[in-house]
Design a protein around this nucleic acid. Structure first.
Length: 196
DNA sequence: TTCTCGATTACCT
DNA sequence: GGTAATCGAGAAT
């Protein structure tokens, strides 16, 4: 890529999470000169028992109830940060979890932060992605622009596949995990038997 | 105040 | 394949 993609507007996030999760596949995501192409995302909706917002607004998930385009970053298992982007309907705790990108820019910095040689393992997983991009809880609650996050519209929309979300114990029947079909940079492929 | 467990990852067998 | 690491949020007491 020789030129930055046009940034998506607030309207991009003014849609339900399952729609944003699908449309963000193929978009570019950059932070501080590092980033790449989004290849995996999950939707978390209102009244979704797998979502942090299911039990209402708490100190941790307060950012999920902010306006669409708000950044929600939380710590999981005491060591990994996970990056979410809030969608509409505003105030209901709907968001999209960015799980993996195909790294294209700032590879040296990302390799250094991750400490791995294999390019495929740089950003394949929510915790790996945030480590590679140096995203922490300091960004929680900020808008995309204030957080220094740049989401760009895709040049072309890749074919996607849907399947059940990973690592949850509730609402496992919803096919709200979206991946770029055939990408080797996803955290794990969707089993053919579970594809929706 | 204490206890339990998690939208994960890396390392070990 | 199994499991330790590690710590904060939320539930339970």
């Amino acid at each position: 890529m020789n030129r930055r993609a046009r940034a998506v507007g607030r309207a991009f996030f003014d849609r339900p999470p399952e729609v944003v999760a699908e449309d963000i596949i193929g978009c570019t995501l950059f932070v501080g000169g590092c980033g790449g192409i989004v290849v995996e995302a999950e939707a978390y909706g209102q009244r979704d028992p797998a979502s942090h917002s299911f039990r209402g607004e708490t100190r941790r998930c307060r950012s999920m109830f902010g306006p669409p385009g708000t950044v929600y970053v939380y710590l999981i298992h005491g060591r990994h940060w996970c990056l979410n982007l809030v969608t509409e309907p505003e105030g209901t705790g709907a968001a999209v979890l960015i799980r993996a990108i195909e790294p294209t820019h700032g590879l040296a910095a990302m390799h250094e932060r991750r400490g791995v040689e294999d390019e495929r393992l740089l950003c394949a997983g929510p915790g790996r992605l945030t480590q590679a991009l140096a995203i922490t809880g300091a960004l929680d609650g900020l808008t995309l622009s204030r957080a220094g996050l740049h989401v760009g519209a895709p040049r072309e929309r890749p074919p996607v596949a849907r399947g059940p979300r990973i690592g949850i114990s509730a609402a496992t029947d919803l096919p709200w995990r979206i991946v770029a079909q055939g990408s080797r940079f996803v955290s794990r492929p969707i089993p053919r038997s579970m594809a929706a």
